[in-house]
């Protein structure tokens, strides 16, 4: 495989729930001081909860599973954002950002829609509210949204459209189970998504309502770097960026990742870089006709989940391919 230097407009893809894995980013925290500084800044803004999050994240045997929303969500936000800051510090200038679910909040923060303190307040508030949501789960179905829709039981909703034939559903435990049974009987393949909260289902409506006043009180500015919205599939408008309702309703709105990715890829040849743990979004991006044909390329900063001791090396290799020279 080519290991040469990559060029072209830089697009950052920032992952969300399902990208998390035990130990993600901890090697960078130990070996890359610039990354650790940003992570510490974020933990500090989280207060006492930040101390606990940090120690559990670094622990060999964490008290709370990484798949639990109060671990996965703040950590994915923090790692996505910290990696983005690192790229900016290296002098790289992304031309567009696209985040998946909580990754969109990281992207918006990197783009200056929210200041860091405000973004951390949004994440903390949201995670606090998840405790009030009935237990549920998520699953990825190898089928289109139209194929899945008729099989959804009440209490189960479309959570994400990740690819033409990859649709994520979310809901309470029991109706999710019967929906998945029905899908299996209809001949569809599915796999569970590691999540303890049915993200992007109607069950999260109370979280949206509760976030309203907080979001209305926080300053929001138009993005300094163009952002493709995972909720409209188009470029985020200045009005949307300033609309508290747009941000508040993320937990119930389905993530239209594939439509958004298609919009992004349509802007011309570019380099799509996964700015967060894992390589899930770049794997999906490899299915884009623009990538299949070689007009656009993809690169995951960290690559597939690996041992933390190898993360700094992975990142250095990615930096070299991007032509960046970390200070």
């Amino acid at each position: 495989m080519a290991v040469g230097r990559l060029t072209g407009a830089l697009a950052l893809l920032m992952p969300g729930q399902s990208a998390q894995y035990q130990g993600m980013g901890t090697g960078l925290y130990r070996d890359v001081p610039a990354f650790a500084r940003v992570m510490d800044e974020l933990f500090l803004l989280m207060g006492a909860a930040g101390d606990e999050l940090r120690s559990d994240w670094l622990a060999a045997s964490p008290r709370v599973s990484i798949d639990h929303a109060n671990r996965s969500q703040p950590l994915l936000f923090a790692i996505d954002y910290a990696l983005g800051r690192l790229l900016l510090d290296w002098g790289l200038r992304p031309t567009v950002l696209l985040g998946h679910s909580i990754g969109e909040l990281a992207a918006a923060t990197l783009a200056g829609v929210f200041d860091l303190a405000s973004a951390v307040r949004i994440v903390r508030h949201r995670v606090g509210q998840f405790a009030t949501v009935p237990a549920g789960g998520m699953a990825a179905v190898a089928a289109s949204q139209a194929q899945v829709q008729p099989h959804l039981r009440p209490g189960v909703d479309i959570g994400a459209v990740n690819a033409p034939r990859q649709t994520v559903i979310a809901g309470a435990v029991e109706p999710l189970r019967t929906t998945l049974d029905a899908l299996r009987c209809a001949g569809y393949t599915w796999a569970p998504v590691p999540a303890t909260v049915p993200f992007h289902s109607e069950l999260l409506r109370p979280v949206v309502v509760a976030a309203g006043p907080l979001l209305a009180s926080l300053p929001a500015r138009p993005p300094q770097i163009p952002l493709v919205s995972g909720y409209t599939g188009g470029y985020l408008t200045d009005a949307e960026a300033r609309d508290p309702g747009y941000w508040a309703s993320h937990p119930v709105d389905p993530v239209l990742f594939w439509p958004a990715l298609t919009t992004l890829a349509g802007a011309g040849p570019q380099l799509l870089v996964e700015c967060g743990p894992g390589n899930g979004l770049t794997t999906l991006a490899r299915r884009l006709p623009q990538v299949r044909s070689g007009h656009s390329e993809v690169l995951a900063l960290l690559g597939p989940p690996t041992d933390p001791s190898r993360e700094a090396g992975q990142l250095a290799a990615a930096a070299a391919r991007l032509g960046a020279s970390p200070p």
Partner: peptide
């Protein structure tokens, strides 16, 4: 497979 765009669900 991941480099060809195919994940575990595919």
């Amino acid at each position: 497979f991941a480099d060809l765009g195919y994940d575990s669900l595919a």
